[in-house]
Design a protein around this nucleic acid. Sequence first.
DNA 1: ATAGATGCAAATGTTTTGCAGGAAA
DNA 2: TTTCCTGCAAAACATTTGCATCTAT
Lengths: 146, 146
Amino acid sequence: MSHEVEQRSLSQYLEEHNLKHTKQREAILAAFLEATGHITSEEIHARVRVDHPNIGYTTVYRTMKLLCDAGLASERHFEDGVTRYEIEQEHHDHLVCLRCGKIIEFECAMIEKTQQEIADRYRFRVLRHRHELYGHCDRCEREAAT
Amino acid sequence: MSHEVEQRSLSQYLEEHNLKHTKQREAILAAFLEATGHITSEEIHARVRVDHPNIGYTTVYRTMKLLCDAGLASERHFEDGVTRYEIEQEHHDHLVCLRCGKIIEFECAMIEKTQQEIADRYRFRVLRHRHELYGHCDRCEREAAT
DNA sequence: ATAGATGCAAATGTTTTGCAGGAAA
DNA sequence: TTTCCTGCAAAACATTTGCATCTAT
């Protein structure tokens, strides 16, 4: 595996919080990190089961919550009621193709600054935000035109 | 009631689709329109029950779906897994207080323009978007400080 | 008369919790 | 050995569906 940095900080987090380092947590972390991103609990469970056939959904949910607390993962809620997890990284937003499901990430300092100004106007303290553009990616738009 | 425009278009929609005009649909529409916005099925159900004690959740869900199809309502999914409905109107975005649940609406032409430029860069055709800022409203921020 | 609507209860799908047994420190 | 974890089964939610009954047209 090539995720030493993340592995190290998981261990660190576990130690700091008097939590135990288990095979299940390791397996779930690995499955999560190997995914391209935006993975569901169900998908993690399926991946992990290949090598560890009796890890349950419960442990996946509990571990993903732990990874979120540890700052390694973060939850995303798109529009289908299923929680997805992605690797925690610099903030960014998403373009989501409604036809093929492709997800493109973007970030824009200009927009961030403007939204901060809006929040200030309402004396609202922004802790986090989501900004998602739904539509058709280049390819799907062409195909739709046929 | 003072919602003739909406009422007329519901009737219109019902007629066009060979659907029936019932007391329940009328009551649910009224409860929905009287709300300030961002109402849940549960809240609609509670309101409607005051005058119509035996309308069930089922009918609320079915009717709200109908109102969405008819273009009178639209679904919103914030981050707590509960569907909220709002009156279909000009596009706008939201500030959501994580402590008291207060929702403030905003819109910003500058941001809309910028996000369009980003999408163009990826040749992505935007059909709709969501932009939500989560944090603490003025009041909750003060209270938290105590 | 008949297509469509309703309300209940039961099913669904996702996520959480209680608990007895199991593993890490 | 003690504290924390795990997996199962059951519970909790929000939402949907099957079905017998009822109602608008």
